[in-house]
Amino acid sequence: MSFEVMLEQLTSGMLKSMLIFFLTLIFSLPLGMVMCFGRMSKNKIISGITGFIISILRGTPLMLQLMVVYFFPYYLFGWSIGGWRYPAIIVGFSINYAAYFAEIYRSGIEAIPKGQHEASQILLYSKPQEFFKITLPQVIKIILPAMTNEIITLVKDTSLAFSISYIELFNMAQQIAAANTTMIPFVVAAIFYYVFNLLVSVVMRCFEKKLSYYS
């Protein structure tokens, strides 16, 4: 196999990995907020159930969760799971990452001084106004470093999609390596993950800089 062909194949794997990454972020960031609200709900039942779900999602391997999501329609209902592989990956990743984000959001919200809430109350901000104008902007600044860590982990975790035989970058590299007895695809893959994470760090650092106008 020529280097060019190899690179072409790896690039297609790379794009698939990146798509998993972006779709997961798009779904898990808001879903994490919903979980966070559930976890912080005054209703003991809601917060209890959400807390339990979050602890399961954080306490079991993502690879296992992907398999459960992928296979459960078949084992539970006997449905064919032919076209389900890709959606299952996105669903599995999104739910798992939402659980981590939910806990990060919660730590951020709890770090906001009570006085901010009391001032908002006295100034008669509505609940949504308080959340979007006062709480959220401050929470984002607080949680940015923790979010950066989690997002970097996500870049690397996209390789776990191989566990349900999805051919993303890592799986592609493995196949090419096995067929051609060469380490080069792994080197290329490693460089890709590293450079992509470097970009993630730079972007996140930019956000942090943008929010450093107050302390």
């Binding site: 006085g115 901010q116 009391e118 001032a119 006295i122 008669l124 006062i134 600044k141």
Partner: peptide
């Protein structure tokens, strides 16, 4: 509630 305001001991200004 529109009738009153409150000034806090530790200000509670919005830092952002």
């Amino acid at each position: 509630k529109k009738n009153f305001g409150l000034v806090f001991q530790n200000f509670n200004l919005f830092p952002h």
